[in-house]
Design a protein around this nucleic acid. Structure first.
Length: 272
DNA sequence: AGAACCACCTGGCAGC
DNA sequence: TGCTGCCAGGTGGTTC
């Protein structure tokens, strides 16, 4: 999926396109995504005005006033806002129809999910136990050190855990570790406060730079306008197996597998 | 509690 | 031109 920068890019696009519009109809083209649509999904949304589109970690939160719905894009979810006569495509799963346009959710692998919430979205089970928001004020070296302390799992796995830091995914974990010259295999409980300080700074840096570039497009990620991101051209390690390390250390990028996911890193400047 | 593994889906691509 | 196997931005359940 879309990791945090891609979700934030989608959020900004959707905000411009649908906030202030009233949902006339919700069209559903199948009974489920990763999970069945919640009971009354269409009925609850129909007739309501979109007040805001917010984000927590990789979740989009659509505020309808006293509740709304939230969604996760999984690996391949995307929204596009299109004319009312837009022809639906394979893997279009639901559409929010407004007076003059419609916003269509498209998700080939259907790892995405949506649910309704009442009151405060942050109380929803999907959001309640998430770790610190890496672009928020509470995220710093100390917070990161505290979250990692006591975990024996490798740094790569720890940072992918949404209960530790919420919003990182495979790409940006690799990039942030490389930028910090920390080994992805270092047990999380062996990180020093100084390293945590550097890493927290670099996590924020790589996420912010990615957002400026509109996120990364690998295969099918699209922002809310159907466009692609550009940050993939700025990758230092991700998907660069065998290529020279951009730190100038003379090493070459290697690919290893950690908890079933590819990790790209430079064994020379990211040694333990 | 925490860590490793597998499952959920579809599509693209490399190799034969 | 197939066909097969592998890989992919993520998460959650099971088992140890």
């Amino acid at each position: 999926m879309p990791e945090l920068p891609e979700v934030e890019t989608v959020r900004r696009g959707l905000s411009q396109e649908i906030v202030g519009r009233k949902v006339r109809e919700v069209r559903m083209f199948r009974p489920d995504l990763r999970y069945p649509f919640p009971d009354g999904f269409a009925e609850v949304i129909e007739g309501r005005e979109i007040l805001a589109v917010n984000r927590r970690a990789k979740f989009l939160i659509v505020d309808l006033g006293k509740g709304g719905f939230l969604g996760h894009l999984g690996m391949t979810g995307s929204y596009r806002t299109a004319p009312l006569n837009e022809e639906y495509r394979k893997h279009d799963h639901f559409a929010l129809v407004f007076d003059d346009v419609q916003t269509i959710y498209h998700d080939p692998r259907r790892f995405g999910a949506v649910d309704l919430y009442q009151g405060d979205a942050l109380g929803h089970p999907w959001l309640a136990k998430l770790g610190v928001e890496p672009l928020g004020n509470a995220f710093n070296g100390e917070a990161l050190y505290e979250a990692l302390k006591g975990r024996k799992t490798p740094m790569k796995s720890a940072l992918l855990n949404q209960h530790v830091v919420a919003g990182l995914g495979n790409i940006y974990v690799c990039e942030a570790l490389w930028q910090s010259r920390i080994s992805p295999e270092l047990p999380a409980n062996q990180i020093t406060p100084q390293q945590a300080e550097v890493l927290s700074h670099n996590i924020r840096d790589v996420l912010e730079r990615a957002i400026v570039s509109g996120g990364s497009t690998l295969r099918d990620y699209r922002n809310a306008s159907g466009g692609t991101g550009y940050f993939q051209h700025e990758f230092h390690v991700y998907d660069r197996e065998g290529e020279v390390c951009k730190n100038g250390c003379g090493g070459n990028i290697e690919r290893i597998v950690q908890s079933g996911r590819s990790t790209f890193y430079c064994p020379r400047c990211q040694s333990i």
